[in-house]
Nucleic acid binder design. Structure first.
Lengths: 238, 238
DNA sequence: TCTGCCAACTTGTTATAACAAGTGAGCTTA
DNA sequence: TAAGCTCACTTGTTATAACAAGTTGGCAGA
């Protein structure tokens, strides 16, 4: 066996949770029951449970047992996770505008598929944008953004693409107390989405260029529905 | 001993990381070395290391060792994580305003201290706000918010408290294409913060009330600096 | 010198064992 | 009946032990 026993067991339990065999708030088998069911030691059974707990799918209470993490509807609010680079620029007092280059259906690249948890080359939607910095010396293209959307998010983006604000290819920007604030009007998809737990929704990538067209920053944001509402992880490097 | 050995050991290691005794990318003592240093079994030494790994402070490589998670500057953007409830309301087309009730230094409650990773009853800053919904029938208090801030964030909030927009006890709200959008002017703390890895920064709590003053929603958001930029987890329930 | 193997060291997995500590049902006792 | 205790069950902590598997440096041999 290449896969460890505790992984097999926790994956089996995770599957049972996902298909509803164990529902929200249900008690999972005790360590002793797992030992007998899978003929493993307590260490292994414990490790399997620990995997689920560390991933937030279960909570353990001493003396009581291990329970599926109680959850209500998992809603995914669509506005904030989309605006990392834009917010950063706005905060630095940089005026900018966008040009939407493409919104197309493409096969998922290997790394994107891995991050979204879907099969390689399955269909994702890619939104490409050009970010222009509007300086005194005229507009300069400083960024290229590529957003890969999974199935769950794509329909909302498609609908949004027909909105007037997006058709104008620009983001309303206004000045407030000396701080330029992006209002994200074209990002406000005004809705919630019920999505599977742990499901990655979007890979958001950008490359920022200096004024002499040298790349100075790569970044990526993966938005993921977790047991609460959603989590973001942003990695940026030179 | 009330505190488990593996907790003591991982806390000691965490402290050594935080004071720079082990720097970013350094190799931590091996399990065998920890066994000898602290006179514990390998299970305990392993558990101590696992604590650090699960918190993102260290990464283990089989055959090589355990290393402090390499990190660049970890910057914490201050605007987005503060506006969950407010954004939700704005998206639903509800006009609202705030009243700041208090900004005070208080001892951390047990659960808050646990979430912030600080000692119980150590000092945190609590901001209390009353959220008013402005309906046709007049203003109704619908929410009570309590934000507990750790040491890292508190100074910025203190400075912010003197800003004119906050002194007016309201958030600028404006109408855009039929959607009321909160501009978060008083939340834009316009700065970055370098914070320790894995450090929880803020516990943001709110309770929403229906018009007949019945509580209908509790929520909490913990913002935490992780090895990328930051992560948010929001839990809401009835 | 270069190649290849091996030994030492590392973390990962798994088993057996014992005690600690929290929970809850049920029984005993007043 | 009601209070309190006990016991069975639960997870938490810790020890000893062995093997698996990945890494690295050194040594032997070509």
């Amino acid at each position: 066996m290449s896969t460890p026993l505790h992984i097999s067991i926790s994956e089996k339990l995770r599957h049972q949770i996902e298909v509803g065999e164990y529902k929200s708030g249900d008690r999972l088998p005790s360590e002793h029951q797992l030992m007998e069911t899978f003929s493993v030691s307590r260490i292994t059974a414990r490790q399997a449970v620990a995997n689920l707990v560390s991933q937030g799918l279960a909570i353990a209470y001493r003396g009581k047992g291990v329970f599926v993490t109680p959850q209500k509807k998992v809603t995914y609010s669509l506005s904030s996770p989309l605006v990392f680079l834009e917010q950063d620029m706005a905060r630095q007092g940089v005026a900018f505008s966008f040009e939407n280059l493409a919104f197309e259906s493409v096969p998922a690249a290997t790394d994107v598929a891995a991050e979204l948890g879907i099969a390689e080359k399955s269909e994702v939607y890619r939104q490409k944008k050009l970010l222009r910095m509007d300086g005194a010396a005229g507009a300069v293209d400083i960024s290229y953004l590529s957003t890969a959307l999974g199935e769950a998010l794509a329909p909302l983006f498609k609908r949004q693409m027909t909105f007037p604000t997006l058709a104008q290819n620009g983001i309303p920007v206004e000045r407030l107390d000396g701080v330029i604030e992006c209002t994200h009007a074209d990002y406000d998809l005004s809705g919630y989405l019920e999505v599977p737990l742990g499901h990655a929704l979007m890979v958001y990538r950008y490359t920022a260029y200096s004024r002499d067209q040298q790349p100075v920053l790569h970044g990526s944001t993966i938005s993921r529905a977790d047991r609460f509402c959603y989590s973001l992880s942003t990695r940026s490097g030179s």
